[in-house]
């Protein structure tokens, strides 16, 4: 298969950036999207040109490192898939493919397709955890969790923090990411003691980081490689409302 690629190239954070045309030839349909890019890069290196910078790590859809806007869709045309698990058979021979980085002021572009997602780390650091004393492991089943609750918590816990929700959202809002974490812990007994504090702290960090405001477009749900539902956003709204208006917990200064 052969493809024409239009790729966003940007030297560094301060560069203006522009699209560049490349051609990918002799691509096998069973290659992953990233392997196709690897081949293009090999050619660029052979020609002594700067290879296209993009991120990847596990390449098996579980780490959330890879992130590209492909033909206007976060992680490309397949639903419930990361870029590394997207295969070239999803495209037609001769297609022109447009590849862009995530675009959001909270995710500044570092180079080409690589963006800085440390805003997500700071949100997690603000409250996306439980405080537990270390010690010997507890016996199994000392804390009972109803199955539907643990299933829902697991659905939310699938979030890999890739940022596709922000990228796909017309408002560049990080609500699905924050909701996944808040809802995951709010469904479990271990998450209860700190739930008000957590919702207040994480939302406050999210607002501070410059993400947009959710307007219930639900593009995030459609783009999420882990298919996390916007039901969790409603849960976050509820947790936050209750924490802000009903609990005695004060918001961070």
């Amino acid at each position: 298969m052969n493809f024409t690629l239009r790729v966003w190239r940007q030297k560094d954070a301060n560069d203006k950036g522009a699209f560049q045309k490349y051609s990918a030839h002799n691509v096998l349909s069973d290659m992953s999207f990233l392997e196709m890019l690897d081949e293009v890069n090999n050619e660029l290196i052979a020609k002594n040109e700067e290879p296209i910078a993009f991120e990847s790590d596990c390449r098996e859809g579980i780490c959330g490192t890879c992130c590209q806007m492909i033909d206007g869709e976060a992680h490309g045309p397949e639903s419930g898939t990361t870029v590394c698990q997207l295969f070239m058979r999803s495209f037609k021979d001769g297609d022109t493919i447009v590849i862009e980085p995530w675009r959001a002021s909270a995710f500044p572009i570092l180079k080409d397709l690589v963006v800085d997602r440390s805003a997500f780390d700071s949100i997690i650091a603000a409250g996306g955890f439980i405080s537990a004393n270390v010690g010997g492991a507890k016996d199994a089943n000392t804390m009972l969790v109803p199955k539907p609750e643990s299933d829902t918590a697991m659905d939310a816990a699938q979030c890999i923090g890739c940022g596709a929700c922000v990228a796909a959202c017309p408002n560049a809002s990080a609500m699905l990411f924050v909701a996944a974490k808040v809802s995951h812990l709010a469904h479990l007994p271990q998450g209860q003691p700190e739930k008000a504090k957590r919702a207040l702290a994480m939302v406050s960090k999210m607002d501070e980081a410059g993400f947009g405001n959710c307007r219930n477009f639900y593009e995030c749900e459609a783009a999420c490689p882990k298919e996390i539902s916007v039901e969790h956003i409603a849960r976050l709204n509820r947790e936050y409302g209750a924490a802000a208006l009903l609990s005695k917990q004060n918001p961070p200064a």
Partner: peptide
């Protein structure tokens, strides 16, 4: 929200079923 995405995408598809939104 405009400020949260100052540079628009070249191509952007909408997959949302919420057209009225």
């Amino acid at each position: 929200n405009k400020r949260a995405r100052p540079v628009a995408y070249e191509v952007k598809k909408s997959s949302s079923k919420n057209k009225n939104s």
